[in-house]
């Protein structure tokens, strides 16, 4: 999959995030996007899926059907783990995805009684259960220990055979472990 960003300018109020961003992404399997904190990685993903509109420039090649896993879990607090996943698929598939992330036993529990890592995995299960042509994941392993992170990487690697995954991470080890390709946001920005 090829996605092109041409002369993209993006700013929040007075803060310029991208002044003239031009790049071409060739996405196949898992691609990790790295960069400095506050450097615009999340904004980059939000621009790709249309949650942010650039002030100028254009983005070509992005499929209409996408999945975006937010940096925050954004689970419905009044719905159980299973019901949260069920918002994007049928009950059977939701149960399968919860099992895939190791939460089959927690299906009937509300997010408030789950640990941070469990909540993150419910959010990941929801993202994986959502049918789309591309997965954009913003720090998907946040709050997971090393063992769980390895398990989740395996789940993602299986998924990457059917659709490309672009994920944001701060951890170079994590990026090396899971991604076939590592991009640095800085490489796309015009040098000052």
């Amino acid at each position: 999959m090829k996605i092109e960003l041409q002369n993209v300018c993006m700013a929040y109020d007075d803060k310029i995030i991208f002044s003239d961003l031009t790049c071409t992404l060739h996405l196949d399997g898992i691609t990790a996007l790295m960069g400095e904190s506050g450097g615009g990685k999340t904004t980059f993903l939000r621009l790709l899926c249309g949650l942010e509109t650039p002030q100028s420039g254009k983005i070509c090649g992005m499929p209409k059907k996408y999945t975006f896993m937010f940096q925050e879990n954004r689970l419905l607090p009044w719905a159980t783990a299973l019901e949260n996943v069920e918002t994007v698929c049928n009950a059977e598939a939701a149960a399968d995805w919860l099992a895939a992330v190791g939460l089959a036993k927690e299906a009937d529990r509300l997010p408030s009684v789950l640990s941070g890592g469990m909540q993150r995995r419910v959010a990941l299960a929801r993202a994986l259960a959502h049918e789309s042509d591309i997965l954009l994941l913003d720090e998907p392993f946040k709050g997971l220990d090393t063992a769980l992170r390895s398990d989740m990487i395996q789940v993602l690697q299986k998924q990457a055979k059917s659709r490309p995954i672009l994920l944001v991470t701060h951890d170079i080890q994590e990026a090396r472990e899971c991604a076939a390709d590592i991009l640095h946001l800085q490489q796309f920005l015009p040098k000052a």
């Binding site: 975006f68 937010f70 954004r74 419905l76 918002t87």
Partner: peptide, 12 residues
């Protein structure tokens, strides 16, 4: 608003 944005992203 975060939940509403999530709903938008997941095409509710």
């Amino acid at each position: 608003p975060l939940l509403l944005e999530m709903a938008k992203a997941y095409g509710f």
